[in-house]
């Protein structure tokens, strides 16, 4: 295997580890959150038939964080979901770094373009 081949294999392992860490962290928030939420509301009948939309505190990153910090079940779950959503974004960001280390400018540009669209859609959405 060439030196570049080694670095590519290293990149694949690193990306694999990042993805695994992201989903495990999400799981570590969702599971305790689910226990708390079920303990409080498990016997209620949820109504998903009519769309009301989530309450405001579960729609913004800052307020989700606050809800989770106060060990609110739904807040913990929602923070886990946010982490899950962030995992592919983090994967793209770290790919840019990995391509840069390989000296692959073409793919650094491609990856940054994807990251730009992602950032625009995540931050610009209201």
């Amino acid at each position: 295997m060439t030196a570049i081949g080694y670095r590519k294999a290293g990149m694949e392992r690193a990306l694999g580890r990042l993805l695994r860490a992201g989903v495990l962290a999400a799981l570590a928030l969702v599971l305790p959150g689910a226990c708390l939420y079920l303990a409080g509301h498990g016997w209620e009948r949820p109504d998903y038939h009519t769309f009301r939309g989530e309450p405001a505190e579960l729609r913004r990153i800052a307020s989700v964080l606050r809800q989770a910090m106060s060990l609110h079940g739904q807040g913990l779950i929602q923070l886990g979901v946010l982490l899950l959503i962030a995992t592919p974004v983090a994967r793209v960001a770290s790919s840019a770094y990995a391509f840069a280390r390989q000296g692959d400018r073409l793919y650094v540009a491609i990856t940054l373009a994807v990251l730009g669209v992602l950032a625009y859609s995540l931050l610009g959405s209201r």
């Binding site: 939420y37 989530e54 309450p55 579960l58 729609r59 079940g73 779950i77 929602q78 859609s121 995540l122």
Partner: peptide
């Protein structure tokens, strides 16, 4: 999917009860 997540989150489509 992540590219569309911001809009759906801010519109209140993502429910923790279903996600859990």
């Amino acid at each position: 999917a992540a590219a569309g997540a911001g809009v759906y989150l801010s519109r209140g489509y993502i429910d923790p009860g279903l996600a859990m």
